[in-house]
């Protein structure tokens, strides 16, 4: 998928992605010549078609987790299906630990246990990548949008 600024006859670049949480998606593309931006808006079914392929519009910025598509898409699932290692044991030892604010921890606890460990790893990887030392609900929102984590 490519976007063309017709006036400039220039290929537009990917700008940002937003997931408002209602199943829709906005992907912004920008013309490098004139700066014009367009937003591609998808309805929930169209968003689902893309996410069912296991891909993120605009690309990935953190590594894919094992069985990420299955775990993020399954409705239900056995509570104790996965035994996740502690998050710090699977990240680089030379990076500083990431703290979870109490409000963020409460929000994480609301995530179904089937997928909670994976979600925690993804947010922690995102925080480390961006030099963030404390994960708050606002950081979770930001990460969810940046990473295209619909439904997490």
């Amino acid at each position: 998928m490519k976007f063309l600024c017709i006036d400039c006859d220039e290929q537009m670049g990917f700008g940002e992605r937003q997931l408002p949480g209602d199943g829709t998606l906005a992907a912004v593309f920008r013309c490098p010549a004139c700066g014009r931006e367009v937003a591609m808006l998808t309805n929930p079914m169209e968003t689902q078609v893309v996410s069912s392929l296991g891909i993120k519009i605009g690309g990935r910025t953190v590594p894919e987790q094992p069985l990420e598509l299955v775990r993020s898409s399954l409705d239900g699932g056995r509570d104790e299906a996965f035994a996740e290692p502690p998050v710090d044991s699977v990240t680089s030892p030379e990076t500083s630990p990431v703290e979870w604010a109490e409000t963020a921890t409460r929000r994480l606890e609301a995530v179904p246990s089937f997928v909670r460990g994976m979600v925690k790893r993804i947010y922690t990887d995102y925080a480390k990548e961006h030099g963030i030392h404390e994960i708050t609900p606002e950081i979770m929102d930001q990460a969810r949008t940046d990473l295209g984590l619909e439904g997490m």
Binding site: M45, Q48, D75
Partner: peptide, 25 residues
């Protein structure tokens, strides 16, 4: 191994249009 005993496999997504995306998933 991922499901409770007797739990059917269900995917999250718009149910009305599931035929469009279920195969890909």
């Amino acid at each position: 191994l991922l499901l409770e005993d007797g739990e059917p496999l269900r995917w999250r997504g718009p149910a009305a249009e599931s035929s469009v995306w279920l195969g890909s998933l």
